[in-house]
């Protein structure tokens, strides 16, 4: 990992009505690195993304922790200062492009708006740049598409427009929240290819939020596995898939039906993610864990380093490995 991370989340804790949604989440995104944040519903992965953009709904409060972006704590910034960073230095793309684009503005105007606001560009220049950006995201006939309204575009094209808007100011960090989940597989493949290429071309750091381990395997350099608002495991992508250390990660990988090779029955994790109101004590995964020991129900496990960059919050890893 690079020496100074672009984004460093440190002990982030958020709560709604006194219930902790995120509980001490820490990880970093290095320069030019793609970090996949994986988890099932209720894991807090979207919450992590929204916290980093300071876009949390009013009902959610950050109770402790820091979010350092290039050394500055975003949580300490004024709303005005944050607005200058948002969409400029840090950009975000969402799952559903239709509800993230303004239906009454042409896609061109929406890109131009970003450029004039953040970069103070003249409209004509911004417009030229908008065409370039649409070109960059491989929208055919960009010069013509620029005067289309969002509803005139297909889902895949809308997601490309979203990406173009996000990239307009060449952000240092792109937060992609389930960027391909709403798309069909063949279109998803196109968009993933595009993101992969752009990330190399623009040397961006990416925080990729997804529930799809396949997408992570294809795109991420490093993976953060979240479970019930806590980090379960952090690992370089190859290590995570080759030697998952946390029983939850192992269970997650075993529950995916394979696309080829021998037909192995996927092995589900018993039970379901606990509700926020009745989180178990100790390790939050212990009620569903096949190898839990007595201590797991009582004491929250700390992080045990396994290899460089690979650590997991599991007592068994500390005791010499998970069986």
């Amino acid at each position: 990992m690079a020496s100074s991370p672009v984004l460093e989340i440190d002990g982030l804790t958020t709560s709604v009505d006194g219930l902790k949604i995120l509980d001490g989440v820490s990880f970093s995104v290095g320069d030019g690195e793609v970090v996949g944040v994986v988890g099932e519903s209720g894991s807090g992965k979207s919450m992590t993304a929204l916290s980093s953009m300071r876009l949390l709904p009013n009902s959610v409060a950050v109770t402790s922790g820091r979010i350092l972006f290039e050394g500055t704590d975003l949580l300490g910034l004024s709303e005005a200062a944050m607005r200058r960073i948002r969409g400029d230095r840090i950009a975000m793309i969402f799952q559903e492009p239709m509800s993230s684009l303004n239906p009454v503005l042409t896609v061109g105007e929406q890109i131009v708006e970003t450029l004039t606001w953040h970069r103070g560009m003249a409209r004509a220049e911004a417009r030229r740049r908008a065409v370039e950006l649409l070109d960059l995201v491989e929208i055919p006939a960009a010069a013509k598409r620029i005067s289309d309204y969002p509803h005139q575009l297909s889902g895949g094209m809308r997601q490309r427009v979203m990406i173009a808007i996000a990239l307009a100011c060449e952000p240092k960090l792109l937060i992609a929240d389930e960027p391909t989940t709403a798309l069909d597989v063949t279109v998803q493949a196109q968009v993933l290819d595009l993101l992969r290429g752009l990330r190399r071309e623009l040397a961006m750091s990416v925080m990729l939020i997804t529930h799809d381990l396949g997408v992570v395997a294809e795109f991420a350099d490093r993976v953060v596995v979240l479970y019930a608002g806590r980090v379960a495991e952090t690992a370089p992508v190859k290590a995570l898939f080759r030697a998952p250390a946390h029983p939850y990660t192992q269970g997650l990988l075993a529950s995916i039906p394979p696309l080829d090779g021998p037909l192995a029955q996927p092995r589900p994790i018993p039970g379901s993610v606990p509700a926020l109101a009745d989180m178990p004590g100790g390790c939050r995964f212990h009620p569903r864990c096949a190898v839990a020991i007595d201590r797991c129900a009582v004491v929250q496990p700390p992080f045990f380093p396994l290899d460089p960059g690979h650590e997991t919050a599991c007592w068994l890893a500390g005791a010499g490995g998970v069986p």
Binding site: E40, S41, H211, L213, G251, L252, S255, I256, P257, Q265, P266, R267, P268, I269, P270, S272, V273
Partner: peptide, 14 residues
């Protein structure tokens, strides 16, 4: 459904 739960339902259906 989440993948871990999805596998439960697939098993049940089988």
């Amino acid at each position: 459904l989440d993948v871990s739960v999805q596998a439960q339902i697939l098993q049940l259906l089988g």
